[in-house]
Nucleic acid binder design. Structure first.
Lengths: 248, 248
DNA sequence: TGGGATTTGTTCGTATGTATT
DNA sequence: GAATACATACGAACAAATCCC
């Protein structure tokens, strides 16, 4: 039942592809290439791209080809700071109208996270880790807040894709559980503190890791700049039309 | 010389027209009618409209004509709640990197607010009142936060246009000054508290006035439903006809 | 209720600007 | 450095759906 949906589909597909790291930051996103696999025209693609830009997930300045956004470190810190402020509010609201059923829902989600981690399914783990925060936001029954959290979480996923490491989510499950425990006990300030700390840890894991291909953006750039100058043009792969929509 | 800007102009024009109450909530916004005076085509208008929708300022569901949004009471409360959370964070950040020059800037703005109020210029007063919060957000040097505050403030302006009364901004200047005083003294928690209180007062002034034209359809319906119910069962006071939201 | 005019959703063609050879 | 190729910005036209009378 998708009446106005082809643009919506393009939007969601791109969004998921970006947050799930199928589309690396900096990847070019030509309108034709995107529209072809989905059978839609450039106009619709353009709409989707515009929304993605508003979400901070793609950059499309001037007449240059749109690319997956590459947030700077400053920008990344800004995103995390705002996210922390909003996540704290989420916890407060969830505490205000707490019900045992909420605890069961959250517990169920955490069990799924554990299962995915145990199975070693990186992709699903990342998705569920983000899903925990989205689920919490749903519990507030505040659509405005949900929307912002959704944006922020997606943006953080992109940041993790840029700066983070694959196994960055390993211990996150425990942190999630701690939050739920505090929630169950009705310990508002404790839960707020825990969530704040958790998001900070995610930020640290993303922004302080140094043993991967580069801690800072400038580092990556300068290194590649050297290679490019010595080597040849780094032709970016066109973008894989993966069969994305496997989720609900 | 704005290169990619005609759409931007349309966006800003519409946005200002809505927040300044030149376009009443519910007003239809046909694409042709909008494009004609600005000399731009529907494609550009559509882009502007899409962005406005993302901002929560217009509604454009299905294939119906776009209209200026009419936020419900629930939605309005949600907006204010999120805004409060973010404004508190703004204050904290401004406190963190406070400098005397900031105080001067804020004082200058407040003087402008006073002048406009004294001159009885309602339009300018409203604009400056919003500008105070935007200015504060600028001081954080956090573009992400600035963007959200900008959206939220605009949305609140729309809400005030819908539910509020013309003289709702009368005492706001004093409240702004109180915040700045606390900021100057470096009293973080006091400033945060003051700002939180201020936004709450704005919300109260907007949402507690009920003697106007009562735009809420659900309000009208529930009232009638209450009367009908009371008529059928004169004895039982089964549920309250009016503002039953006695939560918090 | 039904028909007609208006308006939106979408596509495609042209022109302008950028990036590459 | 200039020319070519390509991608985007914008606009006009077509079809479908809505709203009004």
């Amino acid at each position: 039942m998708t009446k106005l949906t082809r643009a919506e589909i393009a939007y969601r597909s791109l969004r998921q592809a970006i947050t799930e790291q199928d589309l690396a930051p900096g990847t070019k996103l030509p309108e034709d290439e995107i529209g072809a696999p989905l059978g839609i025209s450039r106009t619709l693609v353009r709409q989707a791209l515009a929304r993605l830009q508003a979400d901070g997930l793609v950059e499309t300045g001037g007449k240059k080809t749109a690319t997956v956004a590459r947030p700077t470190l400053e920008e990344s810190k800004d995103v995390f700071r705002v996210r922390r402020a909003l996540e704290r509010e989420v916890i407060r609201i969830v505490c205000e109208n707490w019900s045992p059923s909420h605890g069961a829902i959250l517990e169920g989600h955490i069990r799924k996270e554990e299962a995915a981690r145990k199975a070693g399914n990186e992709r699903i783990s990342v998705r569920l880790a983000a899903g925990f925060h989205l689920l919490l936001a749903d519990l507030t029954e505040n659509p405005v807040l949900q929307g912002y959290i959704n944006q922020l979480v997606s943006r953080c996923s992109l940041i993790l894709a840029l700066y983070g490491k694959p196994h960055s989510t390993d211990c996150a499950v425990n942190e999630h559980r701690d939050v739920v425990v505090a929630l169950r006990e009705g310990n508002v300030e404790e839960a707020v503190q825990l969530m704040d700390h958790h998001v900070s840890l995610v930020e640290s894991r993303a922004l302080n890791d140094e043993d991967r291909d580069g801690p800072g953006l400038s580092d990556i750039l300068s290194r590649h700049a050297g290679e490019i100058e010595a080597d040849l043009a780094p032709d970016a792969i066109a973008f894989e039309p993966r069969n994305g929509t496997s989720g609900t």
